[in-house]
Nucleic acid binder design. Structure first.
Lengths: 231, 231
DNA sequence: TAAATAAAATGATTCATGTCATTATTGGTA
DNA sequence: TACCAATAATGACATGAATCATTTTATTTA
């Protein structure tokens, strides 16, 4: 992995659900007997920070954001697309509330797995537990990177990060429909809405990106990367 | 745990080494046969970000800081005192380098446990693995809190955090020897040295704390807490 | 004890970014 | 089509905190 985890403030985890391959047929069956699949509309809250974590959330469709909040402010920790597990830090009994909130960015659906069943399996299947450790570790390292970027980069770099991330990891194309509003981009990049507007304009004026309606196209990828890297 | 993890930007983990209670006599013996104990002087580097992680570090004495860095900047992720494990995110093979550096704040010593032995035990002892998951989860949640505070609080609040944390968690007294320089405090609180100096002066002028040489005493605990909480 | 070095303190200045106020544009819907 | 609400855009201004330059104090070393 090297040190490049420090270069991007945008944390999208890659698919994690291959961990279920490590379960026995009986374990898999037990999980399937103890889950419900639920759909969420864009804007709906999937889990609320501080509420009792009765299940592990396995995102099967859509895009969500994971964030912490207090009575007046919000910090987005990461965005996740399908194939990811949510709620692992609540696995252990002494901390059985969600440490963050989860909100659907797009129409999404998720399998909710009974946390006691999940916990029981983790406690008995060391290979599976080892895989969970992998996932938690990877998440932690990604978070280090986002934290570092938020602290050390300034706004141009952070916004460049987000654009590159959406392009590279979520939509997997240099041209994509930007479903997020300026306000949502602002929350993701940790800055004010006005700053996003100003910087986006500057990126357009300087020929780094173009915008037709909601379609964003990255024109000068190299320069955008440079801005991302050098703050 | 509720939501109070969001209130303090200072992350010191509590003792983690009780995880070894979950090992069998043979496993414990295998660990003991595959560790070395090493001493470090104040200022020495215990592990270097990006270097191959050949061992899990079990801190047995002292105080260290965990931080990420690039060629020009540094971000302290947490400080740890004796009883803590360091290097868990490097456990899994695909990521076998340290994702952070470790530096001794005070004279310290550590047991270095062969990572392959540690990994083997995790893979075979689900109870132990579950405990490791607990530790990783607790670390992650603490990091969320620090990240949130760094983003949302301003300098007075962050420095108040650090003072309260040193007092409450490290030295466990309202009066303690501040072994850290202003520069080190600045790195911990994520601000410039001059800002720390100015704010410390203000805290003294307003009767929140007093300083005699290196001895710091918290005088108005309630107000300092209020400053910590309200940014 | 003096000299040298490091740490702490202080003031002036700069800068990035947030906030506020206002206007323009867009998209949905009555 | 016209209206309303949400979003985007723009400019003026405020402000928290970094940077830089300099001085004072403390600590180490010769």
């Amino acid at each position: 992995m090297g040190n490049n985890f420090l270069h991007n403030s945008c944390t999208v985890s890659l698919t994690q659900t291959q961990c279920f391959d490590l379960l026995s047929a009986e374990e898999m069956q037990e999980i399937e007997e103890n889950l419900v699949e639920v759909s969420y509309k864009k804007g709906e809250t999937i889990a609320k920070q501080g509420s009792f974590a009765a299940y592990i959330i396995c995102l099967s469709k859509g895009l969500v954001r994971i964030y912490v909040e207090n009575f007046k402010e919000t910090l987005i920790l990461k965005i996740l697309s399908s194939g990811n597990l949510i709620g692992l830090p609540s696995l252990f009994e002494e901390n059985n509330v969600f440490p963050y909130s989860v909100l659907a960015y797009e129409d999404s659906s998720a399998k909710l797995i009974d946390i006691n069943v999940f916990r029981k399996i983790v406690k008995n299947n060391a290979k599976f537990a080892y895989k969970i450790i992998e996932i938690l570790s990877a998440n932690t390292i990604q978070l280090y990177g986002r934290f570092f970027c938020f602290e050390k980069k300034q706004s141009y770099g952070r916004l460049a990060d987000i654009i590159l991330c959406l392009s590279g990891y979520i939509y997997k194309s240099k041209k994509f429909e930007l479903l997020l509003s300026r306000k949502e981009l602002a929350e993701l990049a940790g800055m004010s809405t006005e700053s996003v507007i100003r910087i986006m304009k500057k990126f357009k004026d300087e020929g780094l990106i173009s915008e037709n309606g909601k379609t964003v196209k990255i024109i000068n990828y190299d320069l955008l990367s440079k801005i991302s890297q050098h703050g």
